[in-house]
């Protein structure tokens, strides 16, 4: 960590901003975990709580944005400070989006409670949620400790979520072909899976912001894309 600023209140302003990011990151992680838990356990109360808590996430994003604008106007940060402040603005937006996806998972879990469980889907969703949750946790750690190695690991981890998503996509299509009565539940599960896949992407964006914040340069390597769901076809005529 760099030395303290000569102007102490500058450090206090930065610390306050960083603490808000930490709180927002913690909230995003727990929102996702609880939304997935609500889905798996068919827990209405928990789902309602997740939906309710999203407001705090939105408030935090607004507060961080206000703090960033204040810091830019009053402190004119340079170099590492400038990158820290700009990264905070971007990370807050990513976390807010993650919060929205978690909220949507909670909403769909309420709908899914009115349908029959479909195969093993809930388990796969739980695994996806657990990896995406780890990604959020680790990327916020990486931000707080300016740990570029950890940030790059998070970026690499996203392919696990993508692979699970592609697999689940195929599985759900198969259930729908087997029995049209599964279609309602499967469609909601597809969206849930997509939401979690997107959460992984946003955590990856945060990892890239942390990389830039620490190194002053963007990630060079192109990331391998493992989400093949958009090109997946299951041909019903091959089945016979």
């Amino acid at each position: 960590m760099a030395a303290d600023h000569i102007v102490k209140t500058f450090d206090e302003d930065l610390t306050q901003m960083i603490n808000m990011i930490a709180e927002m990151g913690g909230l995003a992680e727990s929102q996702l975990a609880e939304a997935v838990m609500a889905l798996v356990r068919r827990d209405e109360g928990l789902a309602a709580r997740v939906i309710d808590h999203d407001e705090r996430q939105d408030e935090l994003e607004e507060d961080i944005e206000a703090q960033v604008i204040r810091l830019l106007a009053l402190r004119q940060p340079m170099a590492l400070d400038l990158r820290t402040v700009v990264a905070a603005l971007k990370i807050a937006a990513e976390l807010e989006r993650i919060g929205d996806y978690a909220k949507n998972v909670a909403k769909r879990s309420l709908t899914l409670m009115q349908t029959q469980p479909v195969g093993n889907a809930a388990n796969t969703i739980m695994r996806m949620g657990s990896i995406a949750g780890d990604m959020i946790h680790n990327v916020i750690d990486a931000y707080l400790n300016k740990d570029i190695v950890k940030a790059d690991e998070v970026r690499a981890r996203d392919q696990d979520v993508d692979q699970l998503h592609t697999g689940l996509f195929r599985e759900l299509l198969t259930y729908m072909m087997e029995d049209p009565r599964n279609i309602t539940a499967c469609t909601h599960l597809l969206f849930v899976a997509k939401n979690i896949e997107r959460i992984g992407d946003h955590a990856t964006n945060i990892a890239e912001s942390v990389h830039y914040l620490v190194a002053g340069e963007r990630n060079e390597r192109e990331r391998s894309k493992q989400d093949l769901s958009s090109s997946t076809v299951i041909n019903v005529w091959d089945k016979s």
Binding site: A2, A3, M78, A79, L80
Partner: peptide, 10 residues
Amino acid sequence: TQAYITGRIG
């Protein structure tokens, strides 16, 4: 350079 331009105690 970093310490100087960010106003830190170098």
